[in-house]
Structure formats: C-alpha cells, structure tokens
C-alpha cells in the first residue's frame, strides 16, 4: 500500500520539482569549476609558496619552510612600500585623467554629428593594440636620441629630453602612455551607457528647462552612475595588474621611479629568483586590490539593484 501524505501527493512525485531546483546550479557548475581551477587554485598556491624559500630550477621539496619570514620582511622592505606608492600615484593620475577624458569625449561624440563614427573608430584604436606593442611604440617615440617627440621638440627649439632616463619624466611617460591606451576603454563604456538612456527622461529635462551643464551633471551622469562605477573598478584593478607596458617602456627605472607593484613582484620572482618572497608580495597585492575594490563597491555597487533578480 502506497504511503500517501496528508496533502494527497505521493513523495515520489516531488522528485522532478527537486531536480529542477538544481538546474541553475548545474548550469553554473562549469563556470565555478573553471574559477576554482583557474583563479582560486593559483591564489592558494601563491599563498602556500609564500611560506617557502624556493628558487626556480631546484626541487620544491628541498625548499626550506620559512614560516612568516617573507611577510615580516615585506612589511619592512622599503622597496615594496616605494612600489606601492608609485602604483598609487600612477593610479591616481591615470584613472582621474582617463575618467575625465573618456566621459568628456563620450558626451561630445554621442550626438549624431558628421564623422562621429570615424572619430569613434579612431579613438578606440589604442585599445586594440597589444600592450607589448604599445610599450615598443612609445619607447621609440620617447627615445632621447631617435624619438619623434624629441625631434619635434627640437624643431621648436626645445632641447632633447631624456624622457625615460629621468625619474619625473619617466613617470610622466608611463602615465601618458596609459592614458593614451585606456581612455578609449572609458569612452566606449560610457558612450554605450549614454546611448542606452531612455529618451523620455532626457526630453523631459529639456522641457523642464535644464541647460546643457544641468542636463549632463544632474540627469545624464547620475543615470550612468553604475556604469561609471564599473569602469572605475575595472581600471583600478588594471592599474594593479599593469606590467607589460612598463616592463618594455622603462623596466621600472630609472631606479625604481616607475616600478609598479606588479613589476616589482615580477622582478623579485624572475630577476632575483626569490619566488617565495614574490608570492608573499602577491598576497599583499591581492589584499590591497580587494580592499580598494570593496571601498569602491561601498560607494555604489552597480549590482546592488539586480541582486534579487
């Protein structure tokens, strides 16, 4: 005799509904598996490695366990703090200028003016160039002896500058190159956001008498706030990951004037073969990026309104 519950539905008949509840998890399983294999596992490995003094070319099993020595060394290593300071300065200047220029250009080119599509295409070209090529292009442009920049400065009577051999000029050079490469990223995101704005709201603000500035400051920018936050967050993470362009352009020099934290980690790991120590600094990098990202998300989480979808 079949045991029928009080509501009258046999237990066995509930199974299809239970399984269907698992379907979403089934679909996200590959993504989660890839995340675990490609992201979480290396991070755990880096953390693990930071407790050992291992040099490439030797057996890891022979690497001595050093406990927290790399972390204590890192906290008192002036070179680490100097590279963090360089990274923060670099991030401040590049992100501020890129956000300003990217948003401004998007506002100028969103209207259907003549040739706008040509301008848009030209503006996003730097984004399509590989970072290594960007580094090489600008390295030769900034070259003190054969670079075009010094050549044209010479035509107007300005002495040649050692762009990549002077601490301040080299820092300017990496900031300038980054702005050249990444402003189009802000531009393209913002213009996409602007073009998706509902025309009724924009028209209503015009009917209400808003001038051009008010239209931008109090209507358009607030409406694309979440997009701006995403752009800011992505650029912030990129600043801490930036490596290739600086590696080719200046190698972190002169001295350590352009040695971003990521480049410092690379140099420690591969130039001086201190993999354990480099891993410890990588852990610090993850902590810094996470804290800054959380700070930005607290300012305005673009996913907040969609969390209960």
């Amino acid at each position: 005799m079949t045991d029928i519950p009080a509501h009258g539905t046999p237990t066995a008949l509930k199974r299809p509904r239970d399984l269907s509840a698992l379907v979403p998890y089934f679909f996200i399983l590959p993504a989660v598996a890839i995340m675990l294999a490609g992201l979480v596992y290396p991070v755990i490995q880096a953390f693990y490695l930071s407790f050992y003094d291992w040099k490439i070319g030797t057996d890891f099993q022979d690497a001595p366990y050093v406990g927290l020595r790399h972390f204590t060394r890192m906290l008192t290593d002036e070179n680490v703090w100097e590279s963090i300071w360089v990274t923060l300065r670099f991030g401040f200047w590049t992100i501020s200028i890129e956000m300003f220029l990217g948003v401004s250009l998007a506002l100028l080119l969103e209207k259907p003016i003549r040739g706008a599509s040509v301008f848009r295409t030209i503006f996003i070209l730097p984004l399509m160039v590989s970072p290594v090529v960007v580094g090489l292009i600008w390295r030769y442009l900034f070259d003190a002896r054969i670079g075009w920049i010094n050549y044209y400065l010479g035509l107007i009577g300005i002495e040649p500058q050692v762009w990549l051999g002077d601490a301040d000029l080299a820092f300017f050079a990496i900031v300038f190159t980054d702005i050249w490469q990444w402003t189009p990223f802000i531009f393209i995101i913002v213009i996409a956001g602007l073009q998706a704005l509902p025309s009724e709201v924009l028209e209503a603000s015009k009917i209400d008498g808003a001038n051009w500035w008010q239209h931008i400051l109090f209507v358009k920018l607030p409406m694309i706030r979440s997009i701006l936050m995403i752009a800011l967050l992505m650029r912030l993470i990129d600043v801490f990951r930036a490596l290739e362009v600086m590696y080719i352009l200046t190698g972190g020099g002169p001295g350590r004037s352009t040695e971003l934290l990521s480049l410092h980690i690379y140099n420690r790991a591969f130039d001086t073969q201190q993999l354990g120590y480099a891993s410890a600094i990588s852990v610090l990098l993850i902590v810094i990026v996470t804290l800054l990202s959380l700070g930005i998300l607290r300012m305005g989480n673009p996913m907040k309104d969609k969390s209960d979808i």
Partner: peptide, 21 residues
C-alpha cells in the same frame, strides 16, 4: 656622452656609436 645614456642597453649604446652619434 650621447643623450639618453640613462636608458641605454647594449643595443642602444652600440647603435649610438654605429650611427655616428
């Protein structure tokens, strides 16, 4: 020396000589 020595590796240093600079 030639302008830019602070950025020269071997390639740049030798090029400065070979190009007459």
């Amino acid at each position: 020396g030639p302008v830019g020595i602070q950025t020269f590796g071997f390639g740049e240093a030798s090029a400065a000589f070979l190009q007459g600079d």
